[in-house]
Structure formats: C-alpha cells, structure tokens
C-alpha cells in the first residue's frame, strides 16, 4: 500500500524536508529535495538506514586517555549500540596514526573503525 512520510535529509547541512511516497521499502516519489542526494537518502533510509558513528576508545601508553574514532562509512543504524559495546571494551596501543584501522570489519559489516587523529 502506498504511504507518504516526511523525512529530513541529513546528507548536508541544508536538511531538506523530503515528502517520500513509498510502498514498503520501495520509494515511488520524492519531493522537497534540492539535489539528487535527497532521493538516494530517502531510499537508503527506508531500506537500510545508516549513520556515521564517532566515539572514543581507550588508549594505552598515549598522551591522552582516549582516542577518538569513527566509522569509515555509514553504519547500520540498528546495530550502533552493538558497535559501541564492542568499542567500549577495546583498548588500543599508542602511538596511533590518523585513519589507522582500530577495528576491522566491525560486526562483520565490512566497515572499519578508524582513528580520527594521531596520538603519540
């Protein structure tokens, strides 16, 4: 059955308000977008919503107690807390370089978790 939902596109700071006509996970029509990233976002949000995840992990022997990390690609939204639980118990060894892999293939998603910065 056809349904219309309003989504706010989060691809860029503009935050367009999208009117999405869809049937289940299939997008039929999107209006309100100012660029072609809008419909793409709408489709993804219906079928497989994902978010960038940024958090910290413990670091041993570094100048700081925590190392900021981020997912190399948007991560399945429903599994964010699962990912955070893994990262919470992870401890890395300094020195670390920016974009170094901290956790490879997180939860089998194929997405790596990377260091945000250098830490010596």
């Amino acid at each position: 059955m056809e349904q219309t939902d309003t989504l706010i596109c989060i691809t860029c700071p503009m935050g367009c308000s999208l009117a999405v006509v869809h049937e289940g996970q299939t997008v039929i029509q999107v209006t309100g977008n100012h660029c072609n990233r809008g419909p793409r976002y709408a489709q993804a949000e219906l079928s497989d919503p994902r978010r960038m995840v940024a958090t910290t992990v413990k670091v041993r022997g570094g100048s700081k107690r925590l190392l900021p990390v981020y997912t190399a690609a948007p991560f399945p939204k429903s599994r964010i807390f699962e990912l955070l639980a893994v990262l919470r118990n992870l401890e890395v060894e300094a020195p670390v370089r920016a974009d170094q892999v901290v956790l490879a293939n997180a939860l089998g998603t194929g997405i790596d978790v990377l260091a945000s910065r250098d830490l010596s």
Binding site: C12, P13, M52, A54, T55, T56, P68, Y70, A98, D99, S116, R117, D118
Partner: peptide
Amino acid sequence: LQQCIHNGFGVESLKRDLTGPGYAQ
C-alpha cells in the same frame, strides 16, 4: 576541534565528512 569528535566537518570546503580531530589533523 579536538573535543568535537563527531563527524560533519569539512563537508562544504573539503567535500569530505570528517570528525573534528580529523579535520584538525
């Protein structure tokens, strides 16, 4: 920037979605 560990930095100018520390780096 070092404490702004979230992403969303550099989208306009670098066309990349960086974290605060990553942008600073």
